[in-house]
Every structure is written in structure tokens, then in C-alpha cells.
Design a binder for these strands. Structure first.
Lengths: 115, 115
DNA sequence: CCGAATCCTGTTTGATACTG
DNA sequence: CAGTATCAAACAGGATTCGG
């Protein structure tokens, strides 16, 4: 065989699918915030100090569309909304662990060595 | 304790560091292409059919700056250049595996269920 | 063959203010 | 409290052309 690629196109697509879902500045922080339990809009906003309400709203919506999180509306007065991880969102844990592990490894290699 | 966040700021930063390095449309494909061995510019370009030379050049440079790949220049005529993964680049394998696993899981859950 | 340079477009992100 | 609306800035990505 001349090229090594054709056999792995499916694997590559899976990796890119995953990236699409978690890519961006805020999705990982939001998911991590919610791994500590159900939270309300304002709580998440306090946990991620420099996110704007617009971005938070927008990214929550995207995560909900991908079924990583659940939005529960309480029709009280004033309204209350609670966000939580779905099973699919929880299934990200292994990936998040690897992400953190590699992130630490990277810092050791890069920050210490040169640069 | 009232907030769950302060303790995990370091973990969060590690995850974001990792994301910054692998984020974007082309870095994962490039790294995956190079896991099959040393390759030249044109080979990588053929392995990733829809990448433009500009993007390939730009992303190779970024990956090199982060020490994930190595660039070796052969001063022949015409010049030849070979790219390969560094140990740090190779250390991404576990993360890539998780990325693919979760990507597949995600497709099963999403594509099949509704959407 | 391996890019660099330039120009251009669309998306992402952000600051700020406002609403039910 | 939980967002929306608006505007502006930044960035990613693409098309094309050029050079050693």
C-alpha cells in the first residue's frame, strides 16, 4: 500500500467530530463547572469570571443542542433555570482527564525547556 | 465550602492549554498524518486533500513552535523538507484515542437519536 | 518542490446596554 | 434572575499569485 491514510479516514472523522463539539474558549470550562453538579446561569457565570452573559447563553445553547447538558426551567417568579450534564456530557470525563494530563505534560515540556 | 471552583482552577487551565495547542481545523489531521511516519510537505498535503498550502504551512509552523513536530531541511536541489513527530507530539496518542472514542460515542448518541 | 505574500470573507468573541 | 440586542474587534480560513 502506498498511502497510510485511506484506512484511517473514519478515525480521523471521529476525532474531528469530538473537537467540533468541545472546541472554543468556553465549552470546556462550562462542562467542568457542571461536573460539580446542577447550577444556575448566574452560578456558572460566577465560576467563569470573564465570560459575558452573551457568550454563556450562546454556548449553553450549543451544548444543549449537542445534548451534553440539560436545561430545566422553573416557572417561578422570578424565573429560575438549572443546567446539568446529561449522561452524554458526563461521558466526556475520560476525555477531560486526558486533556488535563496532556496539558500538564505540555507545560512541563514547553514552559520549562525553552520558549 | 461554598464554591467548588477554586480548587480546580489549575486543572481547568491544563485542559485549556491542551485545547489551545490542538484546536483548529487542521492540527489533529496533521498530527495523525505524521503518526504514520516522517513525511514531506507534499505528502501531507495529499493526505489531507482539502488543505491549502497556506494553511498547511501555517499550522506546521505552529505545531513546530509548540514542539509537537520537527522540521528537517535537506539542502539538496530542489530543497527537500521532512516533518516528523517529536516525543511530545507522540505523547498525544492517548488523547487522540480518547478523542476518537468519544467522537464515535457522540455520533451514536446524536446521529441516531434525533437531530 | 516547498513554501511566502497578499488580499479577502465569514465566523467567533467581546463590550455594553437593555428587557421580562 | 436569566437572558437579548447591537455593534465592533479579532481571528480563522480560503483564493490566488509569486519566488528560490
Amino acid at each position: 500500500m502506498k498511502s497510510t491514510e485511506p484506512a484511517c479516514q473514519y478515525e480521523l472523522k471521529a476525532a474531528r467530530d469530538a473537537m467540533e463539539v468541545i472546541q472554543g474558549k468556553w465549552r470546556i470550562p462550562i462542562v467542568i463547572a457542571l461536573t460539580y453538579g446542577v447550577k444556575r446561569f448566574g452560578e456558572i457565570q460566577r465560576d467563569i469570571p470573564d465570560i459575558s452573559p452573551k457568550m454563556l447563553s450562546q454556548e449553553l445553547k450549543a451544548l444543549e443542542e449537542n445534548k451534553l447538558i440539560m436545561r430545566k426551567l422553573y416557572d417561578s417568579m422570578p424565573v429560575a433555570v438549572e443546567y446539568s450534564l446529561t449522561p452524554l456530557g458526563l461521558s466526556l470525563q475520560n476525555l477531560l482527564v486526558e486533556l488535563r494530563n496532556w496539558g500538564k505534560h505540555f507545560r512541563k515540556e514547553i514552559i520549562s525547556s525553552s520558549d
